[in-house]
Computed example of a mutant assay.
Amino acid sequence: MTVSACLIVKNEEAVLARAIDCFKGLVDEIVVVDTGSADNTKNIALGFTDKVFDYAWHDDFSAARNFAFSKCTMDYIYSADADEVIDDENQRKLKALLAALPDDVDVVQMHYTNQTDNGSVYNFDTEYRPKLFRRLRPFRWIDPVHETVDTQVRVLNSDIAIIHRPAARHSKRDFSIFRRVAQPGAALSPRLHRLYAQELFLSGDEEDFLGAYDYFEWTLHEEGFGADTVRQSQCVAAKCCFLKKDDGGLFKAALKNVVGKPSAEVSCVLGDHYFDQNDYEEAATWYYTAAFGAECELSARAGGAEPLAKLSECYRLMGFQEDAEKYKKLAGDWSPGQ
């Protein structure tokens, strides 16, 4: 069984050699697709492999990865990023897995770790991700009668950990792509809609939120979107209206959301609204709701450290020092302004 390591890169001179070094003794081929580097990335890649290809960047990671996969020739493709590291222990695990991989496995998932370090869309530090793919998948007929083609993908969950070590966040790059493809009248898939909203709450600044407003506001008035999508849009629209000082728009989005089980993100925005008006008692009510009576739609911290820290600040300003210290302790290292 042979393996291609496959990367798409752009301006990765600081980390590329570190990533490719991890493949020594593990893969039979290294394919690097450069999407427009202006630094020494291509020369570094050529020091490891002669299979370095140029690809014109079109703000589409899927298209670039499909092109990169088309250049691979081995039985399996290991899809890597330049900011990943496989440490010695997990290199040994991967080598053992490759030596004993069952013939019917189509995809191997691995633990993707260290996601919250400079991450932009992650609430959790570790999750399973598909990393190893059979390049050509044979199809076979199954069932003795009413036969059909077996289309089920055989997935193996391994204990191998891939460490994500980016040099910086890539959220500005992501938001530029989101703004291009997310326009009123052009709905994103439910998965991508959630990821856009999630990335805004985890790493977006005021410019990023306001750049997203027209799209998420459109989804609130257009029919056909599911309940989860609508609640995500309510969170984004409420935050955008708060940033724009549009109280009417804020309450229009927020009041629909808080009927029943409110979203923690909307509750935090309502707390921020009253905090800015120096109504700390009302602000505390909404921060408490976010922490103890709401559900997180997009950001885990919206139901934990963030409202707890802001709740502590409200009690401090109201003169209740004991309560302020209690919630400050519960919030941990997080503080307003982060």
Rank of each mutant, 00 (worst) to 15 (best):
C241Y: 00
K329F: 13
A283T: 00
D125W: 10
E206M: 03
S263L: 09
S263W: 15
F61W: 05
Q277L: 15
K245F: 06
E12S: 01
D159G: 12
Q91T: 08
A331V: 09
Q277F: 10
V52W: 08
F48R: 08
V31G: 00
F251A: 05
T2K: 15
S4N: 12
F209H: 09
D117W: 06
A331G: 06
Y122A: 07
T229I: 01
L156F: 07
G248P: 08
T113W: 05
P138L: 13
D272K: 01
A64M: 12
F209V: 00
R169K: 10
D228R: 14
D60P: 04
R191A: 11
L220E: 08
A300E: 10
E217A: 05
L156E: 02
V149L: 14
H193W: 03
V145L: 13
C235R: 10
F216I: 11
Q109A: 10
A284R: 04
A167R: 05
T151N: 15
V121G: 10
F275G: 01
D214I: 09
N278K: 14
R231K: 02
A227L: 01
A68R: 02
V85C: 06
G249E: 06
A100T: 15
A96Y: 15
C72A: 07
K326A: 11
C241V: 01
D208F: 03
D81K: 13
D333Y: 10
L317G: 04
L308T: 05
V33Y: 01
L132D: 02
Y215C: 10
Y196K: 03
T148N: 15
L188V: 10
W334R: 02
D272M: 11
F48A: 10
F69G: 05
D54V: 14
D54A: 15
A17E: 04
P190H: 12
